[in-house]
Amino acid sequence: MKTAVIYWSGTGNTEAMAKAAAEGANAELFSVSEFSGNVADYDAIAFGCPAMGAEVLEEDEFEPFFTAAEGSLSGKKVLLFGSYGWGDGEWMRNWEERVKAAGAELVNGEGIIVNEAPSDDDLAKIKEIAAKLA
Rank of each mutant, 00 (worst) to 15 (best):
M1N: 11
T3S: 08
V5T: 04
V5S: 02
Y7D: 00
W8D: 01
S9D: 02
G10M: 06
G12L: 03
A21Q: 00
A22E: 02
E23M: 08
A25Q: 00
A27N: 00
A27E: 03
A27G: 06
E28G: 04
S31Q: 06
V32N: 01
E34W: 02
S36I: 06
D41G: 10
Y42I: 09
A44T: 11
A46N: 04
A46Y: 02
A46I: 04
G48E: 01
G48H: 01
P50D: 03
A54G: 08
V56Y: 09
P64K: 10
F65T: 07
F66D: 02
F66T: 08
F66E: 04
F66H: 06
T67R: 14
S72L: 11
S72C: 12
K77V: 09
K77Q: 06
L80Y: 03
S83W: 04
E90P: 05
W91I: 10
W91F: 15
W95I: 09
E97Y: 12
R98Y: 13
V99I: 14
A101I: 12
A104V: 08
V107K: 02
N108Q: 06
G111I: 04
G111S: 13
I112R: 04
I113G: 04
P118Y: 03
P118T: 09
S119T: 15
D121A: 15
L123S: 07
I126N: 00
I126V: 12
K127A: 15
E128Q: 10
A130W: 02
K132D: 15
K132Q: 14
L133N: 01
